Computed example of a mutant assay.
Amino acid sequence: MRRRALLAAALATPALAEEPWPARPIRLVVPFPPGGSSDFVARVAAERMARGLGQPVVIENRAGAGGNLGTEAVARAAPDGHTLGLGAVGTLAVNRFLFRRLAYDPDRDLLPISLLAVVPNLMVVPPALPVASVADFAAWARARGAAVSFGSIGNGTSQHLAGVQFNMLTGTRMVHVPYRDPAQVNSDLMEGRVQVLFQTIAGVADLARSGRMKPLAVTGEDRVPAFAGLPTLREAGVDVTTTGWFGLVAPAGVPEPVLARLEAEAVAAIADPAVAARIVEAGSLPRAGGRAAFARFIAEETLRMQAIVRASGAVAD
């Protein structure tokens, strides 16, 4: 009897030694500075996911190199489900074509969990510009060639690539002017030093509503509640679909049961009406769909961005 009890205890020991998950707070690395759309979406989703997971989801902002530094940290983290990353159009689709070398492979080193939000860009021009529609602006810009410029917050951003795509689709020859400071690019537009921006809604909504910028359309496939009366560029006849977007990723090697749980909690977070309302209020569109849908989305975006980045001729290093 004693031998049987000892054997039973020995067999039970490995199961008892297994660490439950999540066993401690989960780190969510946001590879961009605090205060922007990426940081906001991550915090809103993390707050809701923490309730379902029973552990805090702690945001770690780790900016640099267009998001590459923080994303590399996620790719190199232990695949135990306690480190996640916020993936973006740049880090998962654009940067592989923009940088000569990445220290991580988006397809090999990272696992998609769920898309969280799409971030349309607002096409805005100076109030004094004599145009009232996208068609007016395209005709006006074609007549002036390279004398027309558009600003963005850097090479390879969705704002830059939206302008490149606009050139490709309309035959305009606008020159790209990259900025480091979003406030400066907004100021230069209002003062006419650049003639158009494809800026995040959160970055220019107040300026557009107050009349200091003239909004013409939004990028992406859907109208946005914040400017419900404004057409998409597709509706205006110029199919500029380039947007920002954010989703959750994990290091390759995370166990399947953990991935399934993370997927379920992320999808539930975005489906929560309170979470969705906060994302919409901030100028983004809540989107979810789980691992398979997010993987397809990344693959489609990668193909689309490859052509646009190559057309831009931009390099970041």
Rank of each mutant, 00 (worst) to 15 (best):
M190E: 08
G253T: 15
D317N: 15
V44A: 11
G35W: 15
D272R: 09
M168K: 07
A252R: 14
V41Y: 10
L303W: 00
I279L: 13
V94Y: 07
G52K: 04
A299V: 13
P182W: 10
W140F: 15
V254A: 11
L116H: 09
I308H: 03
A135Q: 15
V74Y: 06
I270R: 00
L86E: 06
G229W: 14
Q159G: 15
V240I: 03
E191M: 14
R193Q: 11
G66Q: 12
P56Y: 02
K214T: 06
E221I: 01
L216A: 04
A5P: 02
A299Y: 06
L102C: 05
E235V: 03
I113M: 02
W140G: 11
N155Q: 08
D105L: 12
P56H: 00
G85Q: 11
L197W: 09
P79H: 08
G70D: 11
L84N: 10
A299Q: 13
A143R: 12
P22H: 07
M305K: 04
E263C: 03
V30K: 13
G237W: 07
L111H: 12
P178N: 09
A78F: 11
A73D: 15
P286M: 06
P273C: 10
L189Y: 05
F166D: 02
A143N: 14
L11H: 01
V134E: 01
F40T: 03
A295K: 06
Q159I: 03
N186C: 05
S37C: 06
F150S: 10
P178F: 08
P126L: 14
